[in-house]
Design a protein around this nucleic acid. Structure first.
Length: 642
DNA sequence: GAATAAATTGTTTTT
DNA sequence: CAATTTATTC
């Protein structure tokens, strides 16, 4: 018992030892939040002898979940089998798979989780074919975000009161979109939480069963939960009421996903008698950084009155620099990293941060130029790459024959003479006869003549062979069989691209094979399945395990996705009015306060060296733009601000 | 039917 | 400026 409390301060101990009932832990940056949560979980398992499968720990990212699990297992000295430690979406998907069949949702337990691009494609089809509107005038992303707003509030998009004149149109689109996803046996991200809350809300017995299951629920990054997630938590805690949440109102930066700052401010009101713990001591940063970030955040009107302090030794202070353009800024950033590296700071202890993903390109070029090891987080997702999506298409089709989108994708990859019109004919035939694309393939002898018929038949036969092989086969050997069967390597390398680009693509394919093997390695053999792998792919987005594993590289990332990380050296680039705070957020007080919190998050990642850099001029959409210093530099009230 | 060239058009942040 | 969509050619 004692070792679980070793080295903790008084409020941290209180948080770890808290017994029954709701608790909120207000945790400033670097205040040992993760240590507190993991020790609390470890204590519940070890001292309170709670069955791990009756504890639900929810995090914001998969990476955070994995890290926490490792730390809990280290504290326990054994594996925490059955412990639910995952993201909201993963938890929702897992419950939904078990219960979806009991509801008229029109999906089976093998439902697929579709990605962003599939969502857009389906919504485009809704606008063009179902609503017969001009897609130039009515944009799919606008419609999707309207629907997401409804889903984030836990309301069916067909029932939601949208703002503005387009409301009736949105509701119609929602109905068509939902119908299309049903045919695909698919949910999108937002649906996972929406439908699981619908299910738990509608069925009292089910709600009791699940809320009895989870004796303890812990939530990380509580400030970034949206209403439907709160509803989800509320439904699951209805029996035991043992919910403890950890968060920092000053780090609420996901307002655009309908996370609301007031959920954390109102926790004590919503859960009367909740214990409140404040972790205000910062163990991460120098007093210079802690004080400057306090100065900054005090400019926000809506916040908890909380003051962070540190007992850490004084450091080098915050450096503010100006450059002519973004190229000079990038060269400088690389040079500064090299300088610190010579002083003994490992590459892995350095971040270069920016507001928008498009800023990463110049930086990347500068890092490549000097041969400095770096990692870009967030920009292009590994699983979004064309060649990866192609192969995943085969896996998806084998897992879910109703997945029309995936069929369309793979039908002519590699080129086998099934062009757009042939595929379209199959799709229409399937729709007419209410068949899956796969079933339509079997009947296609009636549809086509001559050469086309032969080609379609060859494709059907090949897919049938794969289906037979897929029975009981390991995912890794299935993938290998697909790659060999369609001669994917030859097709990739022969596509006429430059040889190096083709070689890169093949490397990515090998990476995918490794990812499958890794999945099989850390999943119990009886649980590993094609569906399981596809779910991981759908929910594990950015940080593919490979990137997370090769440490000791400078991390280039956005201010948003640096949340939860820390490093010796942090360089924030593009500290200009219009970038941070961003143009689109500058005129609305609530949004500019969010921009300030975002900047606060970036600053407080730094342990020792913090640089704020800006350029006088920067290329934006092909035109040079003058850059004025961000108002936030002034708000820090530094001696050396210029 | 498929590959290439030209034109257009968008640009915050993400599970 | 780059990525995506449309037009053109083979």
């Amino acid at each position: 018992m004692s070792d679980l409390l070793d080295g903790l301060n008084e409020p941290q101990k209180q948080a770890v030892l808290h017994g029954l009932g709701p608790m909120i832990v207000l945790a400033g940056p670097g205040s040992g939040k993760t240590a507190t949560v993991t020790r609390r979980i470890a204590r519940l398992i070890r001292e309170k002898e709670v069955d791990p499968s009756r504890i639900l720990g929810v995090t914001f990212t998969n990476k955070a979940a994995t890290e926490m699990r490792e730390r809990v297992e280290k504290l326990l000295g054994r594996k925490a089998y059955g412990l639910w430690l995952c993201t909201f979406h993963a938890a929702a998907a897992r419950i939904l798979r078990k219960v979806v069949g009991q509801f008229p949702f029109g999906r089976t337990s093998t439902f697929e989780i579709i990605d962003q691009s599939t969502q857009t494609k389906e919504m485009k089809a809704v606008i063009q074919h179902d609503l017969k509107l001009d897609e130039k005038e009515y944009k799919a992303p606008t419609f999707l975000s309207a629907l997401q707003e409804a889903k984030a509030h836990g309301i069916l998009p067909t029932d939601y009161e949208y703002r503005g004149q387009l409301a009736p149109l949105y509701r119609k689109a929602a109905a068509f979109y939902e119908a299309r996803l049903r045919v695909l046996n698919a949910f999108d991200f937002g649906d996972l939480l929406l439908y699981v809350t619908q299910a738990l809300d509608q069925d009292k017995d089910l709600r009791e069963e699940w809320s009895r299951t989870f004796q303890y629920i812990l939530v990380d990054e509580y400030q970034d939960t949206c209403p439907v997630q709160l509803l989800f938590l509320d439904l699951l805690t209805s029996t035991h009421k043992n919910i403890s949440v950890v968060g920092d109102d000053a780090q609420c930066i996901f307002g655009f996903t309908f996370a609301n700052l007031h959920t954390i401010l109102d926790f004590a009101r919503d859960y009367p008698g909740a214990k409140e713990v404040r972790l205000e001591q910062n163990y991460r940063s120098t007093p210079e950084i802690v004080e400057a970030s306090n100065m900054l955040i005090e400019n926000n009107r809506v916040r908890y009155d909380k003051t962070c302090f540190t007992a850490n030794a004084s450091g080098p202070g915050i450096t503010v620099v100006v450059h002519d353009g973004e190229k000079q800024e990038s060269w400088w950033a690389v040079a500064e990293c090299m300088k610190r590296h010579r002083e003994g700071v490992p590459w892995g202890e350095m971040f270069v941060l920016y507001r928008t993903n498009s800023q990463s390109r110049v930086l990347e070029e500068a890092f490549v130029g000097k041969g400095i090891p770096y990692n870009v987080k967030g920009a292009f997702k590994f699983y979004d790459r064309e060649e990866i999506q192609d192969l995943l298409g085969y896996l998806k089709v084998l897992s879910n024959p109703a997945n029309r989108i995936a069929w369309e994708r793979i039908a002519n990859k590699p080129t086998r003479g099934l062009g757009a019109s042939t595929v379209q004919a199959i799709v229409e035939y399937a729709q007419e006869h209410s068949l899956t694309f796969r079933a339509a393939l079997n009947d296609s002898h009636y549809l086509f003549k001559g050469v086309t018929q032969k080609k379609v038949a060859a494709f059907t036969a090949q897919m049938q062979r794969l289906e037979i092989f897929a029975e009981g086969a390991k995912v890794s050997s299935l993938l290998q069989t697909i790659i060999d069967g369609i001669d994917f390597k030859a097709w990739l390398l022969g596509k006429g691209d430059t040889t190096s680009a083709a070689a890169d693509r093949w490397q990515n394919v090998l990476e995918l094979v490794r990812a499958v093997e890794m999945y099989e390695n850390d999943t119990p053999p009886d649980e590993a399945s094609l569906l399981g792998f596809l779910e991981r792919v759908a929910l594990v987005t950015q940080e593919d395990e490979a990137a997370a594993r090769d440490k000791d590289k400078v991390l280039l990332t956005t201010l948003h996705s640096c949340k939860g990380l820390e490093a010796q050296v942090v360089i924030i680039t593009g500290v200009e009015q219009g970038l941070i705070p961003h143009f689109n957020a500058m005129h609305d007080p609530a949004q500019s306060e969010e921009e300030r919190r975002l900047f606060y998050v970036g600053m407080t990642r730094a342990k020792r060296f913090l640089y704020l850099s800006r350029a006088r001029s920067r290329w934006l959409h092909g035109k040079p733009m003058d850059g004025r210093p961000s108002q936030f530099i002034r708000e820090l009230a530094l001696d050396n601000s210029r």
